[in-house]
Design a protein around this nucleic acid. Structure first.
Lengths: 339, 339
DNA sequence: TACCATCGGTTAACCGTTGAAGCTCAGGAG
DNA sequence: CTCCTGAGCTTCAACGGTTAACCGATGGTA
């Protein structure tokens, strides 16, 4: 009836609790034969280690933490995080790790949670999202000694293991594609400018535009649909309005499409639109959005693997994910000749 | 340096560990004066109970579990869950409870997780989503004795505490609104028919249509955009095509809008569309979608409260949430007279 | 033969909290 | 004066693992 403990296994196998522990954890100290016998009994009894006892005894709990520094309201909208979490889960659950989720208003509280989780040995490691250019959290994690993986560029990860993709490659691909269509005035509705990857994208955008002799302008936003619409109106109201817009997330691109249509512009005839990140909604729109597509779930899988090996004491390695690639759809076309 | 334990507090206060435990947990057995002294010291030392030790000693861990029985791929799309999680978090974090998230392919695995979590005392309670008409999980939870709250109609909750809203009220509101506009042929793109709330909606839809003398037809789907598009094509291809469609989620409504437009139908002139659940994207579309709006975050908050009190041994109570209300937008209008 | 390393285990301490049981002391009843 | 009661603590044994330290047997080496 009650769940079996190592003591039950030990009794059954005629060995001590310690031997069982060694056998189950693949540690030396038991013969191969005894180990097999113990494992067979554990299996037959349906044994599962009690995570509380394990954590108490000093080993890490098989739990990883994820704190999302977003106000709860904006999160519902972001497909990115849900896909990321799906990917994390896919990897974690096969190794029977659990994911502890926490939403926090700001990065300061996030550090509090890390500290707390670690001291209460609630988690064995954590994932950090939305890296800032100079990120307090990275420093705090290092001095806590809490195993962590950053989801973001290594330049901002400050020595933490990180998983990232070459956003600059993708940016170049998008801009060159638009330039090849004949666009000369390309603008960008950027993300939160303090974030490390936004900075990288801005730099890449400026550089490639300069190289191709194009005018480049980035308007920063807070990633919300409202701000995306505002930025779109701002850019399209300028005297030399751009003929193509690149949006730093899909939500803003959708809002931008609607805004442009409200302003009487036809997409793609009057304005081309590229979305960064490709949610299923993008190809349900009218016209379907050309997007920079990447496998966010795969990101999550890699991040989870990286974290698990960091928790095993592996040195911090960076995983270089596949960069986002352009999926041309109906929202991009050559600009109408009107100059 | 190290985190203080109750032993540290006990030493400092000159009492035993037991006394400290009583004092911190508000149990009788210590004098009011000693309790105050102990609490002051605990506060000064920044004491936080070690969750592993607490869980091991039999008290429940301050963690609640949420298993989502969806294949990871479809989840990224559903704004519903993210908003629900936001709401849960909002309430849980103020009481310093954590949320353990697990995605499972099917309900069977979900039961395994409940069993595991409970036996490992990882969680103190769980939330159950997507109730089926006859739900195995409910039975399993009851016999486990694991505190749980169902998010769904009490008729399917089998005695578990539940949080729900009157979907039939909302359905009546939507159909009466369309009927008042002059629609006579209304069809519905429904959700997964095994789910309890889908069944309730179907019943309500059939009843109100019968009462108003309208033709009613529901096509079940798996909630995905693709299936929503398929159902839309099916319904619009029928000889007496409906002049209004009600979709059981926002994703399918978006897909339906696109599908209708591809078929050469103008919305709302040729076809009116109502979406159940109102994500921010709904009013970014062209035309913006008329939707049944409800505060999903508030659902989450209530669910969390209900669960915490169930974990305190409170009897199962049902919370009756505010039903979804119609937000008329551009996707609904009187039907063109063509008969 | 004496010494030592290795293997395969056992033993017991330990992690921090809980709570039952036991102890002490003061006050009231008989 | 003795007995009983109960408040207020202390003591101690779980809870279920992990792990350092120890131990006996075996085998190789000087």
């Amino acid at each position: 009836m009650k769940r079996p403990t190592i003591a039950d296994i030990a009794r059954e196998a005629g060995v001590s609790k310690g031997a069982v522990s060694y056998a189950l954890n693949g540690q030396p100290g038991v013969s191969e034969e005894t180990r097999r016998r113990i494992l067979a009994i554990a299996d037959r009894l349906g044994f599962r280690a009690n995570s509380a006892a394990r954590a108490l005894a000093g080993a890490h709990a098989k739990v990883v933490g994820l704190a999302l520094p977003r106000p709860p309201a904006t999160l519902g909208v972001e497909p990115f995080f849900m896909e990321l979490i799906s990917g994390l889960e896919a990897e974690l659950s096969t190794r029977s790790y659990a994911l502890l989720l926490q939403m926090v208003p700001h990065e300061a509280e996030e550090i509090d949670f890390y500290r707390r989780w670690w001291s209460e040995s609630r988690v064995g490691g954590v994932l950090v999202c939305d890296l800032r250019v100079h990120d307090e959290r990275v420093r705090a994690l290092r001095e806590l000694g809490l195993p962590a993986v950053a989801i973001g560029p290594p330049s901002a990860a400050g020595g933490l293991a990180s998983i990232w993709s070459d956003d600059d490659v993708s940016m170049v691909e998008a801009v060159e594609y638009l330039a090849a269509l004949g666009h000369r005035r390309i603008a960008r509705v950027g993300g939160i400018s303090e974030l490390a990857h936004t900075a990288l994208r801005t730099k890449a955008f400026d550089e490639v535009c300069a190289r191709l002799g194009l005018s480049a302008r980035t308007v920063p936003t807070d990633y919300s649909a409202e701000d995306g619409a505002r930025a779109t109106r701002l850019l399209l109201g300028a005297p030399d309005r751009p003929t193509a817009l690149i949006y730093d997330n899909d939500i803003m691109a959708i809002a931008g499409l609607t805004t442009a249509q409200e302003l009487g512009l036809s997409v793609p005839a009057d304005l081309s639109i590229v979305a960064w990140d490709d949610s299923p909604i993008c190809h349900l729109l009218h016209p379907p959005l050309t997007a920079l597509t990447r496998d966010i779930g795969a990101y999550g899988v890699h991040a989870a693997r990286l974290l698990l090996s960091a928790m095993d004491g592996a040195p911090a390695g960076d995983v270089h994910g596949e960069p986002a690639h352009l999926t041309p759809r109906g929202s991009t076309a050559p600009p109408m000749v009107e100059m």
